[in-house]
Structures are given as C-alpha cells and as structure tokens.
Simulated assay, not measured.
Amino acid sequence: MTPDAPWLIAGLGNPGPWFRRTRHNAGFLTVDRLAERHGARFRRRGLGTLLAELEVDGHRVLLAKPQWFINLSGRPVARVLRRYGVPVERLVVVQDDLDFGFGSGRLKRGGGPGGHNGVRSVGDALGTRDFVRLRFGIGRPPKGQSIGDFVLKRFTEDEEAALPAELDRCADALETLVRLGLNRAQDALNARTES
C-alpha cells in the first residue's frame, strides 16, 4: 500500500428523499456529517455514486454514497475503489446495525455481514471482507414489527434530538481512524459508547 493512497469512506443507504431520515440510511447520514464538517459537497461522478473529497491532516479522503439501493451497494463501491486506486485496507463502510442500541457505534475490520445485505454486497463485489466497518446502532424493532419495516421507518422524535451528537461521535472516530489508525479509533469510539 502506497503511503499517499486515499481513503474511501462509503456510507450505505437508499437514494431518494423518501429514505433520507430513515434508520437504514445511518451510513449516508454519517458521511453527510463528515462532509459538512469539512465544507465538502457531494457530486455525481458517473460511478453510480455521489462523491465528496476532503483532507484530514493531509490525508486524502473520498466520501461515497452509492446511488443504487442499499442491498446493491457493492458494485458502485468497487468502481470507486478501482477508479481512485484505494487499497481495500483503506476502505471504511458505514452501516446501520440492529445488534446495537440506538447511537452505539463500533469499529471493526473484517467479519461476516451479520445479516446486512449492503455489507454482503460490498464483500461479494470486492471478493474480500477485509475492510473496516463502522456499525451505527439503530436498535431492534418493537415486538410485532418486522425488521424490513423497522429499518425503513424514520427515527423517533427522541432519536432525532440525539442524532446530531451521535453522528458527531462517529465522525470523530472516522477522523481518528484516518489520522491515527484503527486501534486508536476503536478505543475512542468504543469507550464513549460504553460510558
């Protein structure tokens, strides 16, 4: 891996205004927050994705929001990776996760998709799962509600009120990852999640 290779942080979500504030779009919301911090704007680049570019302490970072539905995110992510020469070690996929309570965040490298079809699609398209994942907790559906319905629902009023702080926490972790590496970012994010 060349030391000046860019990072790619790909938020997973569904395109279109109807899905914008739904739980399944936690990945989009996280990369939106990171872009806002740096004054970066998303633009179409003909790769099936919206892209923004920024720098974190001299490190080039691409932010991607695939514009295919979330379960088909892999091909657009793979196209960006190839076009910009991003090594898989510098790919971060930001996803919603049912296994953690709302706002809990976890960073890890590799592992199975845990039932998330967007993550599965990325792994299948790349032929590897050796990328970093930021898992943004959205909690479990209430009794009687299907997972499919739950992930496509908007956040509750209380969750919306807490969402900016949670997105900032995840954006902090992503910046730490780029600057200082995975272990330092995991320590910071996981410690704050558990406190």
Rank of each mutant, 00 (worst) to 15 (best):
L54E: 11
E55F: 13
V56C: 07
V56W: 12
V56M: 09
V56Y: 12
D57M: 08
H59C: 07
R60L: 15
R60P: 08
L63Y: 05
L63F: 05
L63A: 10
A64D: 07
K65F: 03
K65Y: 05
P66W: 02
P66R: 06
P66F: 05
Q67S: 09
Q67F: 01
W68M: 14
F69L: 14
F69R: 14
I70F: 01
L72E: 14
S73W: 08
S73R: 11
S73P: 13
G74Q: 07
G74R: 03
R75N: 10
R75E: 15
P76Y: 03
V77S: 04
V77P: 05
A78W: 02
R79M: 12
V80L: 08
V80Q: 01
L81Y: 02
L81S: 01
L81G: 01
L81R: 11
R82S: 14
R83C: 12
P87M: 12
P87K: 05
P87F: 08
V88E: 15
E89I: 01
E89W: 01
E89K: 00
E89S: 14
L91K: 06
L91A: 12
V92F: 13
V93I: 14
V94N: 12
V94H: 08
V94M: 10
Q95T: 15
Q95K: 15
Q95R: 15
D96C: 09
D97P: 10
L98A: 12
D99Q: 13
D99N: 15
F100C: 03
G101I: 01
F102N: 10
G103F: 07
G103S: 12
G103M: 11
S104K: 13
S104H: 12
G105E: 10
G105D: 12
R106V: 15
L107C: 14
L107A: 15
L107T: 14
R109F: 13
G110F: 13
G111H: 13
G112F: 09
P113Q: 07
P113S: 15
H116W: 07
N117W: 07
N117V: 07
N117Y: 09
G118I: 10
G118F: 02
V119C: 07
V119N: 05
S121C: 08
G123S: 13
A125Q: 04
G127F: 11
T128V: 11
R129C: 03
F131R: 04
F131V: 08
F131M: 07
F131K: 03
V132Y: 06
V132M: 09
V132S: 09
V132G: 08
R133C: 06
R133M: 06
R133F: 05
L134W: 00
R135S: 01
R135N: 01
R135M: 00
R135I: 01
R135E: 01
F136P: 09
F136I: 08
G137C: 01
G137K: 02
P141F: 00
P141M: 03
P142K: 05
P142M: 01
K143T: 03
G144W: 09
G144R: 03
Q145P: 00
S146L: 06
S146C: 02
I147N: 01
G148Y: 05
D149L: 00
F150R: 04
F150W: 11
F150L: 04
V151E: 03
L152Q: 03
L152S: 04
K153I: 00
K153A: 10
K153D: 05
K153V: 00
R154N: 09
F155Q: 03
F155V: 02
T156E: 13
T156G: 14
E157T: 12
